[in-house]
Design a protein around this nucleic acid. Sequence first.
DNA 1: ATTAAAATTGATAATCATTTTCAAATTTCC
DNA 2: GGAAATTTGAAAATGATTATCAATTTTAAT
Lengths: 148, 148
Amino acid sequence: MENKECRKNYRTRQQDSIENYFRMNPGVCVTADEIYMYFFNEGEKIGKATIYRCLDRMVESGGVKKFLSDSGEGATYQLIDGDKGCDRHFHLKCTRCGAVIHMDCEFMDEFERHIMEHHRFRVDNGRTIIYGLCEECADARSGAALKE
Amino acid sequence: MENKECRKNYRTRQQDSIENYFRMNPGVCVTADEIYMYFFNEGEKIGKATIYRCLDRMVESGGVKKFLSDSGEGATYQLIDGDKGCDRHFHLKCTRCGAVIHMDCEFMDEFERHIMEHHRFRVDNGRTIIYGLCEECADARSGAALKE
DNA sequence: ATTAAAATTGATAATCATTTTCAAATTTCC
DNA sequence: GGAAATTTGAAAATGATTATCAATTTTAAT
């Protein structure tokens, strides 16, 4: 009954470990299996089911973002950095190099307002990922096209 | 060698059937399995592997759009209607009821232009799906929240 | 038309990410 | 402390998608 006030979001060793893993590798975007292998190599055994469950919980609570993969390579997960406001802004993901651009911009408020007013739809920017090509990849693609 | 000139995009019975299915049910958004079951019930047997292959080809050629599902319920496919400009516009998908709204609107040109100019990113509207809540589901969610 | 070559089909098996199960371990809370 | 609730994890189950490969169909040339 002593430490009721010092509650953390993730309470078990496994939950802590996974959250720490994200914090120690800021910005990483990993699959459940990569997390599993990481801890396996570290000698810390965490079951796959547990990893999936923890990730689900973190996604549910809004602490982690889940990216669907185009073909079935398994979803990737990324920590949402509250300082960076990842829960509010949009994410642009390059389908070629995988880079994720955090798009924090008042234009998106206008975007959301437009969709709400004209299309009667409440955008969930936490779940939405805008796919496309970053500048380098767009250039590379054009360059490759010239050779074809 | 007689009918060389009358070439279609999809040449086999199965390919024709699948394309016809889409054309006869404009706007449907179905899984590979739903297509399989449809033909199974019609008495026309098309193998699952063939359905996946046909859909892949149609997606590849740009005739059909593939939506990834949030959790692993299987991808859904939808015919791209050239008349409606589905190859240009965006799709809003309700995470609660699954409804897909086709958003054809000059505002999105502005959206793309903004992202290109200010974030140096070329949006792929064919791949992007904007998630959120449609009006009914947003209302239902609010209603449910009152009871909790 | 025949026919050889190329492409497609489909039944089945294989893959592989994710989920379920359920008993054991851990945590919570009185 | 100890009961109740939650979480873990190993293994099995699930389920969508892909690979295999012989048989069928289509294509294109004879």
